[in-house]
Nucleic acid binder design. Structure first.
Lengths: 140, 140
DNA sequence: AACCTCTTTGGAAAGATTCTAACTTTAGAA
DNA sequence: TTCTAAAGTTAGAATCTTTCCAAAGAGGTT
């Protein structure tokens, strides 16, 4: 519960009632850099809170996405959606060989096309796929 | 069947046997700019081919994605995956009010971060969410 | 025609997510 | 403190998307 206090403050700031479950889940998302699936979150928190329900995890992450505290990433995984509590604009790179996910910076001003004038952009998702340096070494 | 001939040629070029179903599906993807879901494709083609199976649509789009003729877009829709036959690198903008999806250009060289040196990038996905000019007008 | 391979089909099955209805907790008023 | 209404949680059923599988079909080759 490293980020418990921060989680509570963020929830309040975004007008979401900081229930025990919500704080737990946001704390977990803030503390891990691996972009977990709903099931990852559920399994991890079940140890400490055996009464936790899967539906609560779904409700909570949906709520957090809705208010903008968390980002949903669906392309990364073939089936399950993943969640990321880092709000800074950044890209995700997934290595197709080892499956690892790397975050990288995106200079978002440079992406903008003239065609997007007049559009209000709220969320930016940049997702690359390929082979990471480690796996490139192994195969060469 | 505007793109039927083009579909057949593309399939051959990518070493995919141009069966009736595959041609139909790729033709449909090439002719529509709306990034349909599997169910959209299935429903649309069922009229002309009542014997078409949902599994065939899944098999086909998976095959097309696998060989690189079509791109899968998961983030755009909350549940269903969408498919796009346009191979040029481009971004997708989804208006959260009207649900329309707009394509826009991405100058892909500009996205690259120094951190990505050594990475081999195969696929680039850029996805924005926000409000389109039309919906911006309505609410002001 | 006989044969082989690839494709399609439909239904069953699996997997992910949402719904529902009952139960619990919370915040604020009395 | 106690009451009340609203909000949140729970467990399991239900739904929806996707894949699997075995059988049937189509196309091409000898």
């Amino acid at each position: 519960m490293k980020y418990q206090q921060q989680a509570i403050e963020k929830l309040k700031e975004y007008d979401v009632h900081p229930s025990i479950q919500r704080v737990m889940i946001l704390d977990y998302l803030l503390s891990c850099n691996v972009h977990p699936t709903v099931d990852d979150i559920y399994s991890a928190l079940l140890k400490d809170t055996p009464t936790l329900s899967r539906a609560t995890v779904y409700n909570t992450v949906n709520k957090l996405v809705e208010v903008g505290l968390v980002r949903q990433l669906k392309d990364i995984d073939k089936k399950e959606a993943r969640y990321d509590a880092c709000l800074e604009t950044h890209g995700h790179f997934k290595c197709v060989k080892c499956g690892k996910i790397f975050d990288f910076k995106v200079c978002d001003k440079l992406i903008l096309d003239k065609k997007l004038e007049g559009f209000t952009v709220n969320t930016k998702t940049v997702y690359f796929q390929g082979v990471c340096p480690e796996c490139n070494k192994v195969n060469s």
